[in-house]
């Protein structure tokens, strides 16, 4: 107990003093996860919307497959990407292994199904309400897609935040493809895992506290954003 309290005190000092190592790890974590979420949104929001708006053979299979991918174990994703980008893999020539780019790819694979599934659900509900009206305006699929994405923005923000939650808390995939290399690919979750295994609890606890704070701040911001949007849109 005494050891834990001492570690907690040290963790507090690391945060307050804005320790360089801590800041570097936090910055890389945010960079990797925010990029992965941004890429996932760029692909997943229109993809989910198209799945919601269109009917074609195999659509249900795609939806079931996507939903199943939401539960992908991160270590399996990490392993698959490791095999793909390692020197002997099909994408080995790009030299991505143990780089932040590899970690972004891994997190994108994990986040994309979540964003796609939540976007599909949000847009499907909205499309049921809007479809006749938008068609009566003579809008093509592009125009209808833009309208639905904009009007569904509060629900879609939630999808993005859910994706961010998955990305920033993930450890299994990024440790395999990133390698947890100091000053190169060390992020909060991999650092916590490493420092805990070494018995260096202070840094682990400092990063854990920051991780929790980021998670809380994200959720508070989402809540405020949704509340504001609801007031303005009555959505």
């Amino acid at each position: 107990m005494q050891e834990a309290l001492e570690a907690l005190g040290l963790a507090g000092r690391l945060i307050v003093s804005m320790d360089g190592d801590v800041l570097e790890i936090v910055a890389l974590s945010l960079q990797v996860s925010l990029t992965a979420v941004a890429v996932s949104c760029l692909i997943g929001l229109p993809l989910g919307a198209l799945l919601a708006m269109t009917r074609f053979r195999g659509r249900n299979v795609l939806i079931v497959l996507n939903n199943a991918l939401m539960g992908l174990p991160p270590v399996v994703v990490g392993l698959a990407i490791y095999l793909a980008i390692s020197r002997a893999g099909p994408f080995g020539v790009f030299g991505l292994l143990y780089t932040p780019t590899a970690m972004i790819i891994a997190q994108t694979v994990l986040v994309l199904p979540i964003v796609t599934a939540l976007a599909r659900q949000t847009i499907e509900d909205l499309n049921a309400e809007y479809d006749d009206y938008l068609r009566s305006l003579g809008l093509g699929i592009g125009g209808r897609l833009r309208t639905l994405l904009w009007d569904g923005r509060t629900g879609l923000i939630t999808a993005a935040i859910a994706g961010m939650g998955r990305a920033i808390a993930e450890v299994g995939a990024v440790i395999i493809v990133g390698g947890n290399i100091d000053h190169v690919t060390r992020v909060m979750t991999t650092a916590i895992a490493l420092e805990t295994s070494k018995g260096e609890l202070a840094l682990a606890m400092a990063l854990g506290i920051i991780l929790m704070a980021i998670s809380l701040a994200l959720n508070a911001a989402t809540h405020a954003l949704r509340g504001d949007a609801m007031r303005r849109m009555y959505a």
């Binding site: 006749d132 009206y133 009566s136 305006l137 003579g138 809008l139 125009g143 009007d151 849109m233 959505a235």
Partner: peptide
Amino acid sequence: RTAMVFQRPVILRRSVDANIRHAIAP
């Protein structure tokens, strides 16, 4: 050119004038 008004109006989640602007955008 047709325009249709439904029994239950479909109101977009935006301001009054933005609703009209959206309808004439095409």
